[in-house]
Nucleic acid binder design. Sequence first.
DNA 1: ACTTTTTTACCCGTTCTCCTACCATGTTCA
DNA 2: TGAACATGGTAGGAGAACGGGTAAAAAAGT
Lengths: 110, 110
Amino acid sequence: MVGERVKKYRKEAGLTLTELADRAGVAKSYLSALERNIQTNPSIQFLEKIAAVLNITIDHLLKDMDNMEPAGDDIDTEWRKLVLEAMNSGVSKEEFRDFLEYNKWKINQK
Amino acid sequence: MVGERVKKYRKEAGLTLTELADRAGVAKSYLSALERNIQTNPSIQFLEKIAAVLNITIDHLLKDMDNMEPAGDDIDTEWRKLVLEAMNSGVSKEEFRDFLEYNKWKINQK
DNA sequence: ACTTTTTTACCCGTTCTCCTACCATGTTCA
DNA sequence: TGAACATGGTAGGAGAACGGGTAAAAAAGT
């Protein structure tokens, strides 16, 4: 069902239902109904908006893509989720850079 | 646009508009309107029916699959580089989490 | 405990999908 | 010339999708 998948990916991105609705520009009432399988036939434009915020393609939402990584991807899935969360939380690349520099420095201190 | 692609694949399958509509179990009037870009936002269930008859997946209808991108950039490339740098510099996921929490908090202070 | 956040659950209004017809233009037989 | 038929397009409407708002219920924090 589409609803479960939307919810699953939303959680992975660390977003609340209201946040996702706002960012995607859809009504939270409808999003809520969709996640609870009350609505089951969304339009493609609706799904496109949601998929864009969640950084996934539409058929991630249509079929179960549990069969993740065919191995050998250079970013492991744990990190991928973290970055997604970071992007959605509004952290800028610059702030992330600073954080990185600081940590490199800290590591060299020990 | 979705319409063009439906029409293209329908022609490739050697089907008439009426045939496709009958086989997919949809109204030919709506299918006609879709192909002429009068309707542009079909539901997923509608597309599923059509894609099934045409033996293609839905995102063949959503994007042009002529240029099969290697894909894999569901995380934008700038961020990807940053994460790789982070992983290589020995920053732990926990430290990253803390950084995230802190930033979310900081943003909410504004 | 109590307060705040998050989610669900309603209401109603508008818009749009998608349907059942019916119409217009061929084209192909007689 | 004519009817039969195939193909695509049109008109109108039922019902679903979708948005806004609000309020209650449930979770989470303090």
